[in-house]
């Protein structure tokens, strides 16, 4: 694999500010890359811009300036509906909070992204159960754990997590 082909995320000169007048400069010209097959950490003190950067990378926030590319595409330039599809197909999120739906079983929670993508519910839940088994997490009740909350993000096999 050539060097540039392994780059999944590329940020160049990314700025992000909030508000007008006494605006807050959250990102001040960030250059960042993340490569396929690697686990990249963004670290730093609270308020340094970590979460803002991740939100800009994943398209939850628009950059005020600069370029963000995922797999060579600038999703920010896509129409809103295509942007949503791009995010659903290419990006998975694991939140610090569990963000699980209490009315659903662990397998049903893990199956939500597949159902949202159009898969039949029974097929989606079966795949979720298989993934639970694969990870050694057998849940038959409505109990769950932080581990379960990670499954919805893994189950669609996104290119970016």
């Amino acid at each position: 694999m050539q060097e540039n082909q392994s780059i999944a995320i590329s940020c160049r000169g990314v700025h992000k500010h909030f508000g007008d007048g006494t605006r807050v400069q959250a990102l001040r010209g960030v250059d960042f890359e993340a490569r396929l097959g690697e686990l990249t950490f963004i670290v730093g003190p609270s308020g340094c811009g970590k979460t803002t950067l991740l939100s800009v990378i994943t398209g939850l926030l628009d950059p005020s300036d600069g370029e963000v590319e995922l797999f060579g595409s600038n999703a920010g330039r896509l129409p809103a509906n295509q942007r949503i599809l791009f995010r659903r197909e290419n990006i998975g999120f694991v939140f610090q909070q569990f963000n699980l739906l209490p009315a659903l079983t662990a397998a049903e929670n893990a199956a939500v992204p597949l159902i949202a993508a159009g898969m039949k519910r029974t097929e989606a839940v079966d795949r979720a159960k298989a993934l639970l088994d694969q990870l050694g997490l057998r849940f038959t009740s409505r109990g769950w754990s932080s581990a379960t909350s990670r499954l919805p993000r893994l189950i669609t096999r996104p290119g970016t997590l």
Binding site: G29, I42, G44
Partner: peptide
């Protein structure tokens, strides 16, 4: 999560897990 066809990015300030990373990007003041 780590896979040849996937880039995994973790945001944290918990130094106890830094040893899991391939690459660590340090941020300060944006």
């Amino acid at each position: 999560a780590v896979h040849p066809d996937r880039a995994a990015v973790v945001v944290t300030h918990d130094s106890r897990v830094f040893h899991f990373a391939d690459v660590i990007a340090h941020m300060d003041d944006g």
